[in-house]
Nucleic acid binder design. Structure first.
Lengths: 342, 342
DNA sequence: GTGAAAGCGCTAACAC
DNA sequence: GTGTTAGCGCTTTCAC
């Protein structure tokens, strides 16, 4: 592969001039610029990323360390299509700004932080995107301590940091209001994974909304979830075995809601008619499911875009508002309906 | 951030010795090793990836350039959950072997090849993984020309190269055999995106299987697809408007099959009872759909694992078999059933 | 406008 | 076993 020296030689100039062509082309005479341009094309030259970043101390890469399980039975990270929507928005936005996306994986939760430390320590990247934020998140503490640029999808309770978040409390309020308007009072709740910040936000929203309608929260109708379908199924079966089952269920995400609907079906019940079900995310399948799913929509692509744009601006040293909260939106479909009289 | 010099100084040795610690620790005296070890931990040292790869000409990164559309209305690339399964297997396998995964995106098909050229030219990566292989694929030609290590998921017709592939022809044969065994003769076919190699393989399998049962192929029952749900819907509506509609349909993937099932439902028909439908992939939703989907399963996680393992072995210069074909497996579910008499 | 030269943080060859 | 040193391919002063 050709180096900057080959170009310099072929164009009859010095390496410094070629470097200028690469970084400050406006400094060059039209003439020289053309020569160099031709040499570069003739030889198919690209500047070495390693040499460039060794000198310039920047990589044009941003990083992400999703905690994806080999077995798909792990919590804390969306392993469904919503994550791909987010990821592809991040990747596209990064690419459009000349950045590539460096992905790694923590095999277990134990070596998650070490993975981040390594990526930062090795100077593999100029900035990081965080997902699956916990209410107290050691990654946030570490990155703040290093003054390393990052933007989180979601926020921590324990520190101030740049983020893009969806107002989960408001989403829950919309869900509860909707169900209450339909006449429901015994509303069950399956939470996101405990530990995640969004779990706390959603719960606050749920509890506040129930209270605002003067509805009690029955502890039997509240279950810790993990974003998995199986858990939705199991929880729904438990609910149905209760002396007084719920008439509506709010799930932590659409996948979990699908599990709930499946459980209903297995018991000969019809989701949306016998029991109302509300999901969260508005993933692609929500509209196509039978019954179609009422759900709180998160704009994943927009979040991915905003997170990445914000991060790249931070890396570029541009000042900006560093915290954004987006409103989710309830989308009413067939899986919820008016409570039938007793 | 500390450099190798800081470590050398603190441990009272030379940089060469620290470098040996990093790359050939067995050469060092136990004693020295301990000193260096301590210095590294005390300072939180990581070797600079840029400096390292400038010198060593390797990056410990592998690359991928998925062609993901911002709008999800593009063909040639799976933008569904099956791609995430593949991607996460790749990422995990890479991480387990000390490699990170560098992702970029071609915004349009036009700048796909330039993206590859850039990644290779800038020496950003040690090897590449290709997806969405075309029957004649310029990326393959380019990489072979550069003698750059790569493994493709799928194979080209135009050149010999390392790949992991699924025997799509065999998958089609299984699908056709299954439908014929159920009594179907008018079998419709919605193809993968034209241009993709898998399109040709599947078609060959389909045509051969039909012929082996002495069944004619009605051109009205063959439609070019693009992996999208909408296309499945549209095609099914077209089929139903035919004077003599098909009794069974084979789709290019599960997403497309879901579109077919939705179209049937909209026309008051029941998938699996009135018309049999076979998908391809066995994506996560296939088993949970109503009706559950008969489909040809592709082992995406295994493919991701194999592709990555193969690539990393190639990078390491280890000899191995460089071409693997996996057999897909038909999974029978509710969406196919015996043809009812007229 | 352009060239010369130092140096980014490592590795590897060679000397001791 | 350990130290010294050249150099990987760039960027960036600083002369001219």
């Amino acid at each position: 592969l050709p180096t900057i020296r080959d170009i310099a030689k072929r164009a009859g100039v010095s390496v410094g001039t070629v470097s200028n062509y690469l970084n400050n082309p406006e400094l060059l005479a039209d003439n020289t610029r053309r020569e160099i341009q031709q040499a570069i094309e003739a030889l198919g030259y690209f500047p070495s990323a390693a040499a460039r970043s060794l000198k310039s101390r920047s990589t044009s890469r941003i990083g992400m360390v999703p905690l994806i399980s080999p077995e798909d039975n792990r919590s804390m990270e969306p392993s469904d299509i919503t994550f791909l929507d987010f990821l592809s928005a991040v990747n596209t936005t990064a690419a459009e700004n000349g950045f590539a996306l460096l992905l790694s994986t923590a095999i277990s939760e134990t070596d998650e932080l070490p993975m981040y430390k390594r990526m930062v320590g090795e100077r593999q990247i100029d900035g990081l995107i965080l997902t699956g934020v916990r209410s107290h998140d050691p990654r946030v503490d570490f990155l703040l301590g290093q003054e390393f640029p990052f933007v989180a999808y979601g926020r921590t309770r324990s520190a101030e940091h740049p983020y893009v978040d969806v107002d989960g409390a408001d989403g829950m309020r919309q869900a509860v209001d909707h169900l209450v308007a339909l006449g429901h009072e015994r509303i069950a709740y399956i939470s996101p994974p405990p530990g995640l910040m969004c779990n706390e936000q959603r719960w606050e929203g749920f509890a506040a909304a129930m209270q605002s309608h003067s509805l009690p929260i029955d502890p039997n109708l509240v279950v810790d979830g993990d974003f998995l379908e199986r858990t939705g199924q199991i929880a729904m079966h438990l609910f149905l075995d209760l002396p007084q089952p719920p008439t509506a269920v709010i799930a932590s995400n659409d996948i979990c809601a699908f599990g709930i609907l499946t459980a209903l079906q297995k018991r000969g019940l019809v989701g949306g008619r016998d029991v109302s079900v509300v999901g969260f995310d508005d993933s692609r399948m929500a509209a196509r499911w039978t019954p179609s799913l009422t759900t709180v929509a998160q704009p994943f692509r927009e979040i991915g875009f905003l997170v990445t744009k914000m991060l790249i601006e931070m890396i570029g040293g541009e000042p900006q508002d560093t915290q954004r909260v987006l409103k989710p939106r309830l989308i009413e479909r067939e899986s919820t309906s008016a409570l039938k009289g007793p």
